[in-house]
Write a protein that binds this DNA or RNA. Structure first.
Length: 350
DNA sequence: AAACAGTGCAACCGCTCTGAC
DNA sequence: TGTCAGAGCGGTTGCACTGTT
């Protein structure tokens, strides 16, 4: 037969623990230690099952339990650990002294998860959710043709992916840029030869190893220890002839956007230099021709700037460890929002 | 002021996994 | 190898509290 239940159901009290029960449990454990939970209720004179006693002790009565709301540092730690460990609440709790797995799980489900969702971050993958940036509809727009899309593929650079993800907040900017760029493209086509497929492929394969996170970034691109956050499925992007099919590209692009790990981790001082030399040695030369136009922008400032109140590009975000939910919400909302600095030239990415 | 809805959290349930015996 | 206890997990429930109408 199956295993016996952890306790007899009859005569076992359920529901909130009374102070008297807590006292009995604490006193018993102080004498005998937290062991043999099944026998504990009987020996201690509690009308509870062993599992209930264990949970009550581990989640509430343990002397090293830290009560009270989570600090910002704890919240930050939870988010970061969750991005690595997933729902391993006990593993997360092991790195947060005084916090229990149940407490962290509850806090995640009632606060952090909702906050991430509100800010367009998938709480499971920690990637931005671009649901409301419907790329398929964008791609189907009559003013965007395949030529434009092929140029868009330069966005498959991980840095550019992040940039593109940020456009979820401001898709009309992308559209305007695409339209603007298409006009330029029409002029350009009269001056530059059309790429052969293999030439196109070789140039990408050899000079823009965009798809492999470990090689995607040129030496001139600083990437403050965030490369491990790249999604594995970015590796799906290889510039072969199949990708020249609009539909395939559309699928890949959508996948890339959905999987781009624009994690909140990027907010913590990750400073990015996206330089034109990423593309200047390729067949897709920077359209403005500037090879030294290094755009230094900090995601710290970019991500922390509310859309409603643009701030200077390099304004640093300061966080005041607010005690109120509003303050924390305010910070985290800003933390998870993205803004394209006005000075950021899209042409460098297209 | 009362009714109602929303929220947060402690606690529980059912299940799986692991290690000891 | 099978059984058992402990631990861990995801999901859920119940209740108190708070905000809104």
């Amino acid at each position: 037969m199956g295993r016996s239940p952890c306790c007899e159901k009859n005569g076992v009290k359920k529901g909130p623990w009374t102070p008297e029960e807590d006292t009995i449990l604490i006193q018993y454990i102080q004498v005998h230690g937290p062991c043999n939970w099944r026998a504990l209720p009987k020996n201690a004179g509690l009308q509870r099952c062993g599992k209930s006693c264990r949970l009550r002790w581990t989640n509430y009565l343990r002397p090293d339990i830290k009560r009270g709301r989570f600090s910002f540092e704890e919240e930050e730690t939870i988010i970061q650990l969750h991005s690595v460990l997933g729902n391993k609440w006990s593993a997360i709790a092991a790195r947060l002294p005084g916090r229990t797995d149940n407490e962290i799980k509850n806090y995640w489900n009632t606060h952090i998860r909702k906050r991430l969702l509100r800010n367009g971050i998938d709480p499971v993958t920690h990637a931005p959710r671009l649901d409301h940036l419907d790329l398929s509809s964008l791609i189907n727009l009559p003013q965007i043709n395949l030529s434009t899309l092929l140029r868009l593929q330069t966005l498959l650079n991980p840095e550019a992916l992040r940039l593109a993800a940020s456009l979820q907040e401001n898709p009309e900017v992308l559209l305007a840029k695409l339209q603007e760029h298409q006009l330029f493209n029409a002029q350009l086509q009269n001056q530059t030869p059309v790429f052969q497929t293999n030439q196109f492929e070789n140039n990408f394969d050899q000079q823009i190893p965009l798809c492999n996170p470990s090689t995607a970034l040129p030496a001139s691109t600083t990437h403050s220890n965030q490369s491990h956050l790249m999604p594995e499925n970015m590796g799906q992007f290889s510039m072969n002839s199949e990708n020249l099919s609009g539909q395939t590209f559309q699928d890949n692009l959508t996948t890339a956007f959905e999987s781009a790990p624009l994690m909140e981790n990027l907010c913590y001082g990750a400073s990015y230099q996206v330089q034109n030399d990423l593309t200047e040695n390729t067949s897709f030369q920077s359209l403005n021709g500037g090879s030294n136009n290094s755009h230094n922008f900090s995601f710290d400032s970019v991500l922390s700037t509310p859309l409603s109140s643009p701030t200077p590009l390099n304004s640093s975000s300061t966080y005041i460890n607010g005690n109120t939910e509003d303050e924390r919400e305010s910070y985290c909302s800003n933390l998870l929002k993205f803004e394209i600095p006005e000075s950021l030239d899209f042409d460098d990415f297209m």
